[in-house]
Design a binder for these strands. Sequence first.
DNA 1: GCAAAACCTATGACTAGCGATAGGTTTTTC
DNA 2: GAAAAACCTATCGCTAGTCATAGGTTTTGC
Lengths: 289, 289
Amino acid sequence: MLVAARSDNGDAAKTATDFRMGRQVPTAIQTAADIRPAAEALRDIARDLGNFRVAACANIASRSPMTDADGNVLASGVFGWPATKEQWWQKPLLALSSPLTFACRYENEPFWANAHGIHTRAPNPLLDQIDLSLFQGEVNANAVICVPVHMSFGQIAAISFSPFNDKRDDLSKEFDLYSDQLEYHARRFVHGYTRVSSQRPWIPKNCRLSKREVECLRWAAVGKTDVEIALILERSCATVRFHIHNAAIKLEAVNRSQTVFKATQLGYLGNVAAVMVPHPQIEAQVAAK
Amino acid sequence: MLVAARSDNGDAAKTATDFRMGRQVPTAIQTAADIRPAAEALRDIARDLGNFRVAACANIASRSPMTDADGNVLASGVFGWPATKEQWWQKPLLALSSPLTFACRYENEPFWANAHGIHTRAPNPLLDQIDLSLFQGEVNANAVICVPVHMSFGQIAAISFSPFNDKRDDLSKEFDLYSDQLEYHARRFVHGYTRVSSQRPWIPKNCRLSKREVECLRWAAVGKTDVEIALILERSCATVRFHIHNAAIKLEAVNRSQTVFKATQLGYLGNVAAVMVPHPQIEAQVAAK
DNA sequence: GCAAAACCTATGACTAGCGATAGGTTTTTC
DNA sequence: GAAAAACCTATCGCTAGTCATAGGTTTTGC
């Protein structure tokens, strides 16, 4: 079956059908029993594309290694990491170590990295300060392609593809050729893994925060006290508390920390730290009190 | 140029090269000047694939409409929403209205929806309670394909594709055929848009939270007081405060709310609400005090 | 247009919890 | 062994949370 290539004149969309030929994506996971075959598929795709070895961390905040339905660790059981290197399961941050983990927090798209730098599709100044001096020791590779996966409830996963048994330290060509597909399969894999292995996350009952509630919460999230928020919004301290308390009830939270946490997880606060402008006048007023 | 089709035997990866033929993805944005052409590309892809009209919200927590480099609103200027419907820019939640916005908070992958239900690639019970009784009125379409985009710093975007000038209310076939590519282009577009239009987000200087700091923060985030955390961890209240205070310093936060906020944004806390198990004994001890 | 629901605003008193500060000890790591 | 990390005790002032109450405005649905 041959598929016509596209031209660059707006027919790009029409070739989408070969993107996922057939109904079944090998890396997708529907049930726990799919984990291992999906991991094997991801491993094979990575090998086929660039002789990469996969390192996958479903939740960079967690120390749990990814396992299949029978509890076998995928890193050694499927992805081919030697059992002697298994120490990193106790410290998953080491393999997807500090530099990569950091980059995954701040970058939405795949990137490749080596000791000389982190190479993204578009410049991301946030990554400039990441210290790569110990790259090889921390990452166990000279270069790596890494796919950050930002998910619901604030969960971040990271999947890396490093050269298997070779010394490549420039993956720019492979990155250009394969990053989209590596990203696609990594995301499908991690989404499915997270879905089948998570316990049921919390969800409030059809809550809908009001504009005022969100506004007050945002200011609270960036560290303002009730008094400060009141001055900013030109409302009383009691009103601010009232709104925050209402938000807490709706989010089924018991205090402000939990309220902020849940609101952040659900994207109510957005990228608020970048847009909230300090109020020099209000700060002077607070200081005068 | 013809590209051989793949079989189902592990050659899937090899057809990746036609996934993004050439170096330039039309929906990718490198500079603000790219916004409009990228939006036009997204519009055209959506039209070509399924005669869809695009509605895009870069940050569901924000009321700002997406605009090009000259400040023109993309919805009316590019995506073809009639100017008379422009009211929804003041209330972006209406177009990507409550049901869809809610679903985007809880779902990582594309889905399609109509008044009868929300149809995901894999069952997501979290979406079951979403009220779709007013679907048509709120979404302005009988059915819609929607792509949630979870990004760094807890930002969530949503891009919907609804039938343009027709009454389709079952998009399951289009969804199966095109959801991957719609997702791909939507994500590229939104990532680029967010990158070029955001002010510089905050970033702490190479911070690295310790295990204890994260542990204490997690419990704080789920609403436990210092006393409760101390009992849970079998440490003193002061130690708990010490660790949380350390985390605050590293995250450059002024109080607990901001600390929790930043830690959540950066994925330090993960999907913690699902894994923290209540401690009935500690709660009894606290009650006894 | 009207009634109900949702949202907004405010008060005051009290207490629980958090933040800052100070100083010290113990454990872990190199 | 030294330095760093983790842990501990204590105090005090500030902030957040609670409670009960009151009233007004806006939005929604019929």
